[in-house]
Design a protein around this nucleic acid. Structure first.
Lengths: 293, 293
DNA sequence: TTCCTAAATCGATGTTTTCGATTTATAAAA
DNA sequence: TTTTATAAATCGAAAACATCGATTTAGGAA
């Protein structure tokens, strides 16, 4: 009725050996079985594949033509299976990681390590707000999310803690405040501040902290790019507020921890529960945990 | 233990439908059977192909990767079988032809001839927009496409010219314009027009021509069915714009060629390159070329 | 919560594959 | 020409397998 790969396997071997009995032996079936399966294949194809010349057999024209396709079919199936083997061995695949800015330092290190260990895996990094990324996670656009997110109560998300970070004043070393060991929210109101715009969760978080400390702090400048903010801070003319872990590649900038309840946040790695977890994600998570320590 | 084509057939259908129950129905087996065969395939591949998200399913990374190979495998097997069918001398087989409406006259003649010569070949005609049909061509749903399409630059498509057609005003013989030998785009603006909706490539094409002639022409009525448009034109109350070859079976309607640069288009027959070409397709193409002359 | 629907699982059934034995056919040897 | 050896086809029985219908499990909707 329908063609099956078994029949193609048998046919190809028989064509190669030009002999049913030997082919059957190689296939660990009896000659009877081989004979019947070939016949069945011929029936479904409605064409003879072998000429039976007494006790010899020979491919017909149809058989010769079909042999090529039978081989190709088997090869494709084999390649597909091989590809999945490779996937299991992390010799191929894709990994898509979402992150918020505050995670960059750890992320860069983790990705560098991972890519060195598994050079065949293609990595995509998607920056966005925590909410953006959550959406993308649910849409299956990213495999995991790195952010300051502590979970939403249900069990659809797996949340793995990475490290803790402090909300901090970022100031150029030449300024007075840069030398302080800590600073209170109230003390911020006199300082010239450049803050990330409300797209960034750290800004939300900062507003929350100041509201709780009952002080009102308005930035002089608002920018929606963390790197630009750091550049501005690097001139010494402005300060900013970021998680201390956002601070790297600017040796002249110092982080002064904000003194307040809840000024420490936990960075986490989040992925969907209850779906198959890519091996690549597991490996990446493993490296990430090490990088975060 | 071993992969079988049956499993690939089930898998591909399930992946396409994203739903086991519906896929099973289409395959004329029960959902139970499908479920078990998919599981078996997953076992032999040692990789999950679907995420089971409650009552939904979704391809895993492995599944997406494997889908391509499964399709390729089935296609090769199918091509091999088709090869032998053709070898049987066009005494059996299927031919699926996609066409846009403007080709109908030639298509009908070609099919009539072909079917008389090879009565055993089952013919399917699929009408659709050029883009629809291109997609179906790439999906192997149709063997060739007849349309006003001149190629897309790459060598995956073989394009054979059939005939040229003129963009024309279609008017009832009782109207004044029907007696003109030709008409300019500017002259159209005073006429009551029913135009095919933008789904039709001829409309795109007409808009392009008027834009180049620097006149703005808006239809009174827009309809997404060519036959309905011709019925309307046949009342004498409206005119329309079509390729002159679309005009047949309405003896009272006349085509007045649009006088403009580029108002002639070439109709073509297009099929995929680099795959085995059915004998039936070759024969059909041959007849088509003769009909188009 | 209850209801609805989709996938997984289970045991029974029917089909298909396989096997071993036998038959048929033919090429080579006597 | 007969005999012998060997290879493919055929046959009936046995094993393996796919399929089914019924049931269970579980998510999503009302």
């Amino acid at each position: 009725m329908f063609m099956e790969l078994r029949q193609l396997r048998y046919f190809v071997r028989a064509a190669e050996m030009q002999n049913f009995t030997n082919a059957a032996a190689r296939l660990y079936v009896t000659q009877s079985t081989l004979s019947q399966q070939i016949k069945q294949l011929e029936d479904t194809l409605n064409a003879p594949l072998f000429d039976r010349l007494g006790k010899r057999i020979r491919l017909t024209e149809a058989g010769s033509l079909f042999l090529e396709y039978a081989r190709k079919t088997l090869r494709d199936a084999e390649e597909g299976a091989q590809l999945l083997q490779d996937l299991n061995g992390l010799r191929t695949g894709r990994l898509s990681v979402g992150a918020t800015y505050g995670i960059t330092a750890v992320l860069v290190k983790a990705i560098a390590d991972f890519s060195r260990q598994y050079p065949a895996i293609k990595i995509t990094v998607v920056y966005g707000s925590t909410n953006d990324l959550l959406q993308q996670l649910y849409d299956f656009n990213i495999d995991c999310m790195l952010s300051f997110f502590s979970g939403n109560g249900d069990d659809t998300l797996a949340v793995h803690p990475l490290f803790s970070a402090n909300l901090s004043l970022i100031a150029h070393q030449s300024t007075d405040v840069a030398r302080q060991k800590k600073i209170t929210p109230a003390q911020l109101s006199d300082l010239p501040l450049v803050l990330p715009s409300r797209d960034f969760s750290v800004r939300d978080y900062f507003d929350q902290v100041t509201r709780m400390a009952d002080v009102d702090i308005q930035p002089v400048i608002e920018v929606n790019d963390i790197n630009a903010i750091l550049q501005l801070a690097n001139t010494g003319a402005w300060h900013t507020i970021l998680m201390d872990t956002s601070l790297f590649s600017f040796p002249a900038l110092k982080a002064v921890p904000l003194q307040s309840t809840h000024s420490r946040r936990k960075a986490t790695m989040v992925h969907l529960n209850n779906i198959y977890q890519k091996k690549a994600l597991q490996a990446f998570q493993h490296g990430l945990m090490r990088s975060a320590r």
